[in-house]
Design a protein around this nucleic acid. Structure first.
Lengths: 339, 339
DNA sequence: TTGTAGGCGTTATCAT
DNA sequence: ATGATAACGCCTACAA
């Protein structure tokens, strides 16, 4: 049995395709008996509209698009959590999610082009925005709505972000309050939009505290756990090593903790550690990881909701949301130190 | 500037839509000068084919579909990890992923219908198959290829699964080898396909060992951490409580560990615990969780690869893959006991 | 080598 | 209340 279309029902019922279409769509100008007849036939045939055809005609797809890094896998709970939030809220509004995993570069942009110019989605979610971001330039030039997780100082596209500068600044103060004076930063790659903001928060805190700006205490990682471990090797290998290490994301912090433990030192005791994000693994780490919380799941929900508002042409306020950071103090940052 | 279509390029170049289409598609029967001209114009206009139209015409979408539980969020690393594997491998073959988060029931089936009968995807991935699974019945009746994570004993659809019966059986033997004789099972909901298999493994192990089948040692949970904790309350509240608890998934095992700790007992010492899955959180738990590993990410990759093979009509062997279970012994199952 | 014509399945416009 | 017709953008016989 072939798939039923409007034509099948039209033939079966004797009514025109037009009438069948309108009966099924619930238009008022259809005789009730006619409608019932048509609905019965449709049910009997298991009719399901061809959504591709509908999308072609109607110009919208009830689908949100997202391109995620080809490397963002179970190692990267950040993206998975975000995805969950976006997908959950999208579903609530009747939207599906079209995902494409791509490596950074040419392929990535063409994935955007396929989704947007290819008319496969009604809007895009862009996460982990970069400085001078080609994806963003593309989206700005397109007519489709989009929302962004992250921002740079002067940006004016629709975004949600956590105030990372303030967050880092507060965490450095937390370390200082515990008696630390040699506080290191494992920074994020320069090209990420949040990298300079978080670095600025670090410098600002040192200034607040009257601590010297020591460039040897700043090591840049690539957000992976391995790079966090490598940073620890470098930091603790130098004379006058730091007693506290603040990583710009939790993955690196967890890697740092592992490296510290491997050196025979105790996290929270010999060296204090903190991260940024509060991914699920942070609370489960041992010792549990002190971190700056980003409500990633909720941000995902918010992004989806805002995006759908934009798609529907509703008046969306709060196009620029900057959330206050929330410090989550756990055991990895230790206890106040003597002296 | 409106979006460029074949017609735009046709008007611009003076050639017919047909010729433009063929030039861009790389057909041989197009004059090279003509092709160059057309390609230049297409580039200049930033032409991107409307994929919706192409899909309508060509009947395939280069997209895999997956419906995930609306509740499967960051709390459920199982689905996120699986999704990662599927998405990563799909991308490698040029496929995207269409996701729909749905609650179980009517909505769930209609999400399948929209994807499959609605011609939005070329094939489906079904995870966590159930007994007498309506989704599976639907897929069997459809003409689309699909692959399944999980199986029941007599099933003959394309699947990949880990041999849970053997896995549970071996883990019970592991507990017994450590000196336990009161070994409890936190079972999975009956309607999941793997539930009776794992339960059978438990009974089989008891028989192997000459231990009595005590129904009070089997409590059924709903796969959530909370239900694992509740099971512990019930198990440890009875006279002659178990000294070892085996949960049918890691989430429940982690919940069980938390409940044991909350009672003032030490996991691995007073009560041994093990789980099933080896989700990322298992290794990070404290103490680290002994478990039966499912290579979820790799299974996701395999599922995608098999599915794409089926879609392309290639001869796919190994349509029924049953992986050997791998016991991952960590600290939560404790040490051999005296006596 | 290029063009004409038809159709994929749907929805919208305009008559009747 | 119903139907004929066109159009969305693309692909592909078939003709020229």
């Amino acid at each position: 049995m072939k798939k039923a279309t409007l034509k099948t029902i039209s033939d079966e019922s004797g009514f025109s395709i037009t009438t069948v279409s309108r009966a099924l769509a619930g238009y008022a100008d259809v005789n009730e008996r006619t409608r019932q007849l048509i609905i019965d036939i449709a049910d009997r045939l298991g009719y399901q509209p061809n959504l591709t055809a509908r999308h072609l005609r109607s110009k919208h797809t009830n689908t949100l698009g997202m391109v995620i890094p080809l490397t963002a896998y179970y190692s990267d709970q950040f993206f998975m959590t975000l995805l969950s939030g976006v997908g959950q809220q999208a579903a609530r509004f009747g939207y599906d999610l079209l995902l494409s995993a791509q490596m950074r570069g040419e392929e990535e942009i063409s994935a955007y082009r396929r989704m947007v110019d290819g008319s496969r989605v009604d809007g895009m979610v862009l996460a982990r925005v970069r400085q001078r971001d080609a994806r963003l330039d593309y989206l700005k030039g397109s007519a489709r709505p989009y929302v962004v997780f992250g921002h740079a100082d002067e940006d004016d596209y629709p975004y949600i972000d956590v105030d990372g500068k303030t967050g880092i600044r507060q965490m450095v103060h937390h370390f200082a309050a515990y008696g630390h004076r040699r506080i290191a930063l494992i920074a994020a790659p320069d090209d990420l939009a949040f990298a300079p903001l978080r670095l600025a928060g670090y410098w600002a805190a040192l200034d607040d505290l009257g601590l010297p700006r020591d460039p040897r205490l700043v090591v840049t990682g690539d957000l992976s756990a391995d790079s966090g471990a490598a940073a620890v090797t470098q930091l603790l290998g130098q004379p006058d090593p730091p007693t506290a290490i603040l990583a710009c994301n939790d993955q690196m912090a967890l890697g740092a903790m592992a490296a510290i433990t491997a050196r025979g030192l105790r996290v929270g005791d010999d060296v204090a550690v903190a991260g940024f994000d509060d991914i699920p693994a942070a609370a489960n780490a041992s010792p549990p990881l002190t971190t700056i919380r980003q409500p990633i799941f909720e941000i995902g929900q918010s992004l989806a909701q805002t995006l759908i508002g934009l798609i529907r042409g509703e008046a969306v306020h709060d196009l620029h949301v900057l959330l206050d950071p929330e410090l989550v103090i756990r055991a990895s940052s230790g206890k106040p130190r003597a002296g």
